[in-house]
Amino acid sequence: MSASPLTRGRLGVLAATMMALAGSALAQAPSWPTKPVKILVGSPPGGPSDITARVFAEQLGKRYSQPVVVENRPGAGNNLAAGVAAKAEPDGHTLVLSPDTVLTVNPLVYGSQNFDARADLVSVSVLSSFTQMLVCHPSTGAKTVPELVARARNANLTYASGGPGVPGHLASEMFLQGAGIRMQHIPYRGPAPATQAVLAAEVNCGFLATPTVLPHVKAGTLLALAVSSAAPSPLAPDVPTLATALRQPGLDASFRLVLQAPKDTPAAVVRELERAAAEIMKDPAVRTRLQGADLLAQGTTSAQARELMQTEMARWEPLVRRLGLKAD
């Protein structure tokens, strides 16, 4: 029995509606990623960038059912990894996670680069923030910040960092400026050798990533004097903040880890990435994992990331210019 004209009409409308809905779903479905995604990190394994990148990569891979790999390319204050990402195909399949210093400080410190971090990369999201811990070798003779300040007034002390303009260098200079003292800066090629230098008493002190130095503090081979954040570290709640130790409210040397993509990455891909970042970083399990490494999950929008970078540029540029920081 053939359908009546009325029934055929209803079926036609239903079919058209279903096709329209299917077309809408296809239009909304992300066209990214279509292949494995690589996240470059400009520091060795175990640091704040590496930890955040690996937690994020794991969740991103689950979300899109695509492999997401983290590749460490340490060197030049995180510039090496950022430079590789800047020259990658702008399709969202090569990303980089860097400390904000790549954008805020490095363009002022590194005179010869083969890329422009501020122009060649798009800030997708601030995934997390981290701070530094002021540690000293026991032979330095200072167990507190006031004791270190007193020692520095009467002796030529030194401090290590992972290189000119890195977070540990900036935190140290903020401390020295706030305390009104001097210590000689001894830059190393990365945080690992800087930590080893303090452990070996080649250098007196250093502001270094909390997860990196905390095992040595617990072992008694390093002494923790302060953390650079405005609030105490959840991993070392008994260690005072620098602001408290110096009695200078407002002192805060926190740093942000920025997920970036090459310029000209399609806006739709950036939106998909920032949406994924926001949702992943709100996950309680993710937040707990990062907090266990002294990292505060964030997950901002791209616009918020850009605004934060402008604020940090204005914050650190006067210090960089005052010190005349330069690197080969």
Rank of each mutant, 00 (worst) to 15 (best):
A150G: 06
S229A: 15
V96W: 14
T144R: 06
G162I: 13
A88M: 03
P266R: 00
L14E: 04
E89I: 04
S229P: 11
R153S: 14
A245L: 08
L208Q: 05
I186N: 10
P167Q: 04
L21V: 13
L40C: 14
P284M: 14
P164I: 05
N79W: 02
E317C: 04
Q66L: 06
L295P: 13
A152K: 08
A285K: 00
S129R: 04
P318Y: 01
S229V: 05
A268K: 11
R322A: 13
G9T: 09
L103I: 09
K35Q: 11
L11M: 07
G92P: 08
G47W: 01
A276T: 01
Q28L: 14
R289N: 05
T288N: 10
L225T: 06
N156D: 15
T158K: 15
V124R: 01
K38C: 08
L60F: 13
T52S: 13
L6P: 01
H93Y: 04
L26Q: 12
P48D: 10
Q184D: 15
N154D: 10
A53V: 11
S31G: 03
D294R: 08
A27H: 11
D116S: 11
R306D: 04
S123N: 13
Q132P: 05
Q291T: 11
L222E: 08
A209R: 02
R287E: 11
T52G: 15
A22I: 08
E89A: 02
V69R: 15
P30D: 07
G324W: 09
S233N: 11
M18T: 09
P191Y: 07
T244D: 14
S172A: 06
R322T: 01
G206R: 03
Q59L: 07
L121Y: 04
P48R: 15
M183D: 02
T311H: 12
S123G: 05
C136R: 01
V239Q: 01
G206V: 05
V145E: 07
R256E: 03
L6Y: 04
V109P: 00
V96F: 11
G12T: 12
G190N: 12
T7M: 09
A285D: 03
E317R: 07
E312P: 05
A285I: 00
T52Y: 15
L134I: 09
V227F: 08
G190S: 14
Q113W: 05
Q298D: 07
P232G: 01
G47S: 02
G61Y: 11
Q132N: 07
S65M: 02
L251C: 05
Q184T: 14
T265Q: 08
A201S: 14
E89C: 00
V122G: 04
V96H: 12
G141P: 00
